[in-house]
Amino acid sequence: MAALPRRIIKETQRLMQEPVPGISAVPDDSNARYFHVIVTGPEDSPFEGGLFKLELFLPEDYPMSAPKVRFITKIYHPNIDRLGRICLDILKDKWSPALQIRTVLLSIQALLSAPNPDDPLANDVAELWKVNESEAIRNAKEWTRRYAMDN
């Protein structure tokens, strides 16, 4: 394997030394481009109290290409689908090489606080979120309790 670029080393060091509140990102022992991520559900959101596991992978041409991120823990959210794929502009066409792992994780945390049903990835969830928000929030809380707690 090619030597790890300075950029990745620097980012990893900073993530360890000054972690983002509510987020832990730890590189895998055998692959420094693969991160085990845990995001705590933001306060005053239906995901509060949950611990959400994600995987983050830095592709060969990172940072020219965006990191690949996916939820492992099941989550009821209009912008996250059954496979855990995330609909977030900065992971797609709005990616800039000047963005970092840190900014990506902060954006994901923000997405949990403010779901955006007008730009959906999970259509059925987004639909319910629009027509009956209280029921959608109930579902999200239920899923959080069932899948994101006590493990």
């Binding site: 041409d61 020219m64 290409s65 709005k94 800039s96 090489p97 000047a98 963005l99």
Partner: peptide, 25 residues
């Protein structure tokens, strides 16, 4: 970095719409 940025974009078939590397630019 400019060189790598351009090469990655071109590999994806992008040419006339390659933008600056800065965020939101």
């Amino acid at each position: 970095c400019w060189t790598t940025h351009f090469e990655v974009q071109i590999t994806q078939g992008i040419s006339t719409t390659i933008s600056c590397m800065a965020r939101d630019c």
